[in-house]
């Protein structure tokens, strides 16, 4: 295999990484916001349940969570076969592919990632929202602003400024956690490099994969750094 063939093959795997990364972000941010509102709720049962949920999810290794999501429907007796494998087969026959596709398993991984990261995000959001002093809300209130206006025009930007550094950390961790999709045989970048190593005895692509991660994380770091800088004109 030439360098370019290997690069292309790895790039295909990295595409999956990026897809998982993006979908997780898009879904986990709103869900995390929802969970953070639940954990701050004045309705005690909701608060308790959501806090226990966050504790459970944050306490379970993501790898284990992936397995749990993957096996859970089968355990609950939904379908004779693992429901995600059934999906795999369905998509494979739909596409008329000779190789087994991995759409079902990808969904299982995505669910695990979204649950895991929405819980982490929710704690960051809670910290950010709680860091805004009562005085900011009250100042808006005595100026006759509505609750929505206070949130959108006063609180939101301060919260974003406050959560950006911890969010940057989580986002970068998320990039690297995508490698865990390996656990249920999704052909992401590291899996492909590993196959080359075991199948064709080419070892160096394993090291080469690091370049992809480093470039991606580097780009993200610059982007997030810019956002932080943009908000540095005020002190919350």
């Amino acid at each position: 295999m030439s360098f370019w063939q290997i690069t292309l093959e790895l790039l295909g795997g990295f595409g999956l990484t990026c897809l998982l990364f993006l979908l997780t972000l898009i879904l986990a941010i709103p869900l995390g916001l929802g969970i953070s509102f639940c954990t701050m709720s004045s309705f005690k049962p909701l608060k308790a349940v959501s806090k226990i949920f966050v504790w459970l999810i944050r306490g379970i290794p993501l790898m284990l969570l992936i397995f749990m999501i993957y096996y859970l429907p089968g355990l609950l007796g939904l379908g004779s076969l693992n429901i995600f494998n059934q999906l795999d087969r369905y998509f494979t026959s739909l596409a008329g592919s000779s190789e087994m596709l991995y759409h079902g398993r990808f969904i299982a991984v995505l669910i695990a990632f979204v649950i895991n990261y929405s819980c982490y995000f929710s704690e960051i959001f809670r910290g950010g929202i709680e860091s805004i002093s009562r005085g900011q809300y009250e100042a808006g209130q005595v100026l006759g602003m509505t609750k929505g206006q206070i949130f959108r025009k006063i609180v939101l930007k301060q919260v974003i400024k406050c959560i950006l550094p911890p969010m940057s950390n989580e986002i970068i961790t998320l990039v690297k956690d995508t490698a865990l999709a390996n656990a249920i045989a999704i052909p992401e970048i590291i899996q492909r490099a590993e196959l080359m190593a075991s199948g064709q005895a080419i070892i160096w692509p394993i090291f080469y994969t690091a370049v992809f991660y480093l470039l991606f994380v580097g780009g993200l770091t610059i982007l997030l750094g810019r956002a932080e800088k943009k908000l540095s004109y005020f002190k919350a």
Binding site: G135, E138, A139, V142, I154, K157, Q158, F234
Partner: peptide
Amino acid sequence: NILNFGFVFQSFNLFPQYTALENITLA
């Protein structure tokens, strides 16, 4: 009854992301 009254806080509570002028014009 809010708009019959204005309130000045002990701790100012200006909105940090807005300039002095914007703080006044916002509401």
